[in-house]
């Protein structure tokens, strides 16, 4: 589904962050990328979505066998990649319901059937125990950390992408927010889609069936293993991977 080959990328201010990263995600898999601060975790998700603040200097990103390096962010979203933000921005005056409808229409080839859209949205809100009036609020404005997270997961379920990238680099995430995320992933996950969780907190993985864990250090994946690797890192930290 997603193949990244020898990827080098830098921030627009010139500092190289990813230095020859390789990664392959197949259909139906859950991957976890862990790494210490400054290893390039957030850069990776931003580069996959082609955030103009970053620049790919060499290497390729393929999604379903198509090179997506040079696609615009919204075109990548339309291909079926979703990114859940660590700190989603607040957009004043824009209702969540209106935003979700606009987004759903943008990624769909055909005009979205409003009735189906609302039914689906209500189901998802039920599953996430979100109250009805939530979607009448302005997008992320004045939200608590947990509410923002819920909103990201609601978007994930509503837009239903092929690949979900969850940027959870914040170690300060509280227990409730962690539950929201892992519960959300389980609701989303099926054999036809894939998930990348970027974190350095293994708690988030407790209720998930993780296929691979990658250790990202200094812009490169230096070790790959199964879920036991996450446990090991939680206990021992990254020191043995740092030179």
């Amino acid at each position: 589904m997603l193949v990244i080959k020898n990827l080098y990328a830098k921030a627009k201010d010139g500092k190289e962050i990813l230095k020859g990263l390789d990664l392959e995600i197949k259909k139906g898999e859950i991957h976890v990328i862990m790494g210490p601060n400054g290893s390039g975790k957030s850069t990776l998700s931003n580069v996959i979505l082609n955030n103009p603040k970053y620049e790919i200097t060499s290497g390729e990103i393929y999604f379903e066998n198509e090179l997506i390096n040079n696609l615009k962010t919204n075109e990548i979203a339309k291909k079926g990649i979703f990114m859940s933000f660590q700190t989603p921005v607040e957009v004043e005056g824009v209702k969540i319901s209106e935003f979700l409808k606009t987004a759903k229409n943008s990624i769909s080839d055909e005009r979205v059937n409003l009735f189906k859209f609302i039914t689906n949205l209500e189901e998802n809100m039920d599953k996430l125990s979100i109250k009805k009036d939530f979607i009448n609020r302005e997008l992320n404005v004045g939200f608590s950390g947990g509410e923002k997270k819920k909103n990201e997961i609601l978007q994930l379920l509503t837009l239903n992408p092929k690949l979900a990238i969850l940027d959870e680099t914040d170690s300060g995430l509280d227990i409730d927010a962690i539950k929201v995320v892992s519960n959300g992933i389980n609701l989303f996950k099926n054999e036809n889609n894939s998930v990348i969780i970027i974190t350095h907190n293994a708690k988030i993985l407790e209720n998930l069936k993780v296929d691979y864990v990658h250790v990202l250090v200094n812009g490169k994946i230096i070790k790959t293993g199964d879920s036991s690797l996450a446990k090991e890192i939680e206990e021992n930290g990254y020191s043995k991977y740092l030179k």
């Binding site: 979505l49 955030n51 103009p52 603040k53 615009k72 962010t73 919204n74 990548i76 979203a77 339309k78 979703f82 990114m83 933000f85 989603p88 921005v89 957009v91 935003f99 606009t102 987004a103 759903k104 943008s106 990624i107 978007q155 837009l159």
Partner: peptide, 15 residues
């Protein structure tokens, strides 16, 4: 802000 535009574009909206 560029961050706001990026956020919205990541959900499929054009610039």
């Amino acid at each position: 802000s560029d961050d706001t535009i990026f956020y919205l574009m990541s959900r499929g909206l054009s610039e």
